[in-house]
């Protein structure tokens, strides 16, 4: 037992020594890197992966090219969008490959503090909306218009929606105005938050298997459309004036956003060939979906899916190489 205690004491001593050794002066912890980075003296790039599969596809291909074409070691970290911006500004993450627009963070980190730099467009446009399954739209052709949603509210009832129709929302990290929309458009619906995209997808697939009705918040590009064909519900037309309103008062559709890459400012300047490759990274919605489907549907590992795509589309990625 004496041994055990000695271990504990040794550990404590080691810990405090490390603290002491790390310097007595000031330490800027926003400049620290991951302890797992560059383990064997390799040049390391850390990429943020968001929880959705499209983002995994971007990152997987970027990672594959960085590793196999440029000889970097790539670490990936999965974090939600806003914390990822934070990590980006601190250099814990070098790049976010797919950003859906975060005005507050852009203002703070790109505008005021200049810790983050834009990395150019990804080549894919994102669109958020409400969707119903195609079989439902075939059965009731007028359902895909918000004017008629109240008429069909009974179809979407669930144990969670309390007698109203259920509008299924997903992960808390996603941009959504759905509560305001339901209220301002006078819809007889209850927004139910699935809490994670995984839960939402699982639920949609279950409904689809049995051809049951559902109304869901969803977005393009997304691989799920290949498995579960859906029709978008028409919402009041998007205008900039409407989007500028107080979030509680918004009553129009979501915009179509060209997705952006963002890099840590220091990395963008001094990141060498890796930074150049990531800035040049630009592909189409079809390319992204191809990789996403391999990951999510065929259950391939992201790196295998990336290799398959890279082998089949050399013309696309050759242009990105610095």
């Amino acid at each position: 037992m004496g041994k055990k205690k000695t271990y504990a004491i040794t550990a404590a001593a080691a810990f405090s020594t490390v603290t002491a050794l790390s310097g007595c002066g000031a330490v800027d912890m926003t400049e620290q890197r991951s302890p797992f980075a560059g383990a064997a003296g390799a040049k390391t790039v850390t990429l943020s992966v968001q929880s959705w599969v499209g983002a995994q596809a971007n990152t997987a291909v970027a990672k594959y090219l960085l590793e196999h074409e440029l000889g970097y070691r790539v670490d990936t970290v999965q974090v939600d969008e806003v914390p990822a911006w934070d990590a980006l500004s601190q250099g814990r993450v070098d790049a976010i490959m797919e950003d859906w627009g975060h005005p507050d963070q852009e203002k703070r980190y790109i505008g005021d503090k200049r810790l983050v730099a834009r990395g150019g467009g990804l080549g894919v446009s994102g669109h958020i909306g409400w969707w119903v399954p195609k079989y439902l739209a075939d059965r009731h052709p007028d359902i895909a218009d918000w004017h008629n949603l109240n008429k069909y509210a009974h179809l979407f009832r669930s144990p969670e929606s309390g007698g109203k129709g259920q509008l299924l929302d997903g992960s808390p990290s996603y941009v959504t105005n759905d509560k305001a929309l339901v209220k301002n458009l006078g819809l007889d619906y209850e927004v139910v938050f699935a809490g994670s995209e995984a839960a939402q997808i699982t639920q949609l697939k279950q409904q689809y298997k049995r051809h049951k009705p559902f109304l869901t918040y969803w977005y393009k590009p997304q691989w799920l459309f290949k498995q579960v064909p859906m029709v978008e519900v028409k919402l009041p037309k998007y205008t900039d004036a409407c989007a500028a309103k107080d979030p509680e008062k918004i009553d129009c559709a979501y915009p179509t956003t060209p997705l952006q890459k963002v890099l840590n400012a220091d990395f963008a300047e001094n990141g060498g060939r890796a930074a150049k490759l990531l800035k040049n990274f630009h592909w189409s919605e079809r390319d992204q979906n191809e990789v996403s489907l391999l990951i999510a549907d065929k259950k391939m590992k992201p790196q295998d899916a990336a290799r398959k795509w890279v082998e089949e589309h050399p013309r696309v990625w050759r242009e990105w190489l610095p």
Binding site: T19, S22, D28, M29, S34
Partner: peptide, 9 residues
């Protein structure tokens, strides 16, 4: 900062 540094090291 030191705390964080120590953890990383």
């Amino acid at each position: 900062g030191h705390l964080s540094n120590a953890a990383v090291l």
